[in-house]
Structures are given as C-alpha cells and as structure tokens.
C-alpha cells in the first residue's frame, strides 16, 4: 500500500482543520495510507519572507526531521508546498544538512497536484448542482505551476459549474505579513477580489491556500456577503464521500 506523510501547515491546523481532515480522507479514499507526524508546526515561510532566515532555518530543520521515510509529503497548500519544495534548498544553501533538505524537498507535493498527477483519482459527484469559482493562489501558480490540476478535479464533478473570476491570477492581497504591514493596500486588493468573486454569481469560492481563504473569507464576511470561501479539499470530500 502506498504511504504518504501529511503536512497540515499552521493555518490549516489552526483555522481549517476540516480542510486538513478532508485532504487526509481524499488520500485514504484513493487507497493511500496517511501518516501525520504530530510534531509539525509551521514551514517557516513567514520568517523566511521577512528576511529572518536563521529563525526560518531553525524551524524548517525541526520540520524536515519529522519526515525521515522516503515517501511523499503532501500539503494542502500551494504556498507552503512552494516554500518547502523550492525555497528550502535556497534557505539551506551551503549548510551542512543541505543535501538532506534537498532530498526532503524533492518529496514535497501539493495535494491537488498529487491527487491528479500521481494518483490519477477519479471522483464521482454526489452533490446538488452548484456554481463555484476558483481563486488560484499566487505561490501555487508561480512556485509550483499549479494551474490545471484543481480545475481537472472540479471538472470531474458532474453537478458543479465553474464560473471563472475576471482576474483569476491576481493576488487576493493576503501576502502574509503584508496584510498587516500594508493593511490599506492589502484591504483594497482583498475587496476587489471579493467583488470579483461576487460578480461570478457563484455560491462558493474555492482555493488551495489557507492564507487566501482566511483573507477572502474575512473580507466577504465583513461585507456581509452570503458568498463563502472553502478549501478545495473540503469541497471535493463533501461532494464525493458516501453518506
């Protein structure tokens, strides 16, 4: 039986555990044994992006140590997967454990990419007809080239109509510490994203990333919009699990 590690990411752990559970369930439903190391915390991206590389490295090192087996590490986040896959090698460049970290990085996958490209999952839609829209996270697209996979999964759901955003590839304004360092700009971007989503007529916005979810959902809520944002894993699991 195929085995994988699951890395929740701090945002999913704390704010979107349902999405994390759904990710695990989707993998298990595809016949994969999922291992969830309990010591996991954060991938280190916030400190890395702010230039605090020593701190980021200390944390990253403890994370890498939790995944000793040579099996894939699956993340329900494009941004954190991008960090672990593409930026860890940069962060550990010239360090004594660089080779070990690189080996780890090569085993990192974002959830939807793993479901489509490695497992080739087939989904059966059991839900009511619904219209959704898709927000692609910047790091997922630009760090991982994650463009088609989530849409392929959505397309497998017979009762789901996908209404695209006008500016699908534009940042939602989260940007980690950017959201509180530049709250006015970030807020303006978030409000535009929320308005774009509302204009699609969809009843749910799907995304792969906890940061975008927190941001866009909070913005929609503040606008008293009925529209909500949901992690794609949670959406897929809700629609396909046998009840």
């Amino acid at each position: 039986m195929k085995e994988v590690y699951f890395y929740a990411t701090c945002l999913v752990d704390l704010f979107f555990p349902d999405a994390g559970m759904a990710g695990i369930e989707l993998l298990e439903a595809a016949g994969v044994r999922v291992i969830f190391p309990q010591g996991q915390t954060c991938c280190g991206q916030p400190a890395f992006n702010c230039g605090y590389w020593e701190e980021a490295r200390e944390v990253a090192r403890t994370q890498v140590a939790l995944f000793p087996k040579d099996i894939p590490v699956i993340l329900p986040s494009g941004s954190c997967a991008g960090m672990m896959k593409n930026h860890y090698p940069e962060l550990f460049h010239g360090q004594a454990d660089e080779a070990q970290v690189r080996a780890f990085s090569s085993r990192v996958f974002e959830l939807t990419q793993f479901l489509v490209n490695e497992l080739d999952v087939k989904l059966t839609d059991l839900g009511e007809p619904v219209k959704v829209t898709w927000h692609s996270s910047c790091h997922a697209v630009r760090d991982l080239g994650l463009v088609g996979e989530p849409k392929q999964l959505i397309a497998q759901l017979a009762n789901v109509e996908l209404a695209p955003l006008t500016r699908e590839h534009e940042c939602c304004g989260f940007g980690g510490t950017f959201s509180v360092r530049q709250p006015e700009i970030s807020g303006a971007m978030s409000c535009d994203k929320a308005a774009d989503a509302e204009a699609t007529g969809a009843s749910v916005v799907l995304s792969t990333d906890g940061g975008c979810l927190l941001n866009v959902n909070g913005t929609l809520e503040a606008k008293k919009s009925p529209l909500r944002v949901q992690h794609i894993a949670e959406f897929l699991w809700e629609r396909t699990r046998a009840r």
Binding site: F15, P17, F36, L66, G187, S190, C191, G218
Partner: peptide, 25 residues
Amino acid sequence: RTRTKPVPARRSLSERVRAKGVPHV
C-alpha cells in the same frame, strides 16, 4: 479594517487526527 476577525477552529487538526486514529508518529 476590511475583514472579520479570524477565529481559530474549536479543535486543531492535530487534535482531530489523534482522535480519529490517523497514524501519527
């Protein structure tokens, strides 16, 4: 300023995973 306050879930994923019995090391 433009968003509602983020509210943590009532149980973290790590807790839920332990409760569900997903293999955890």
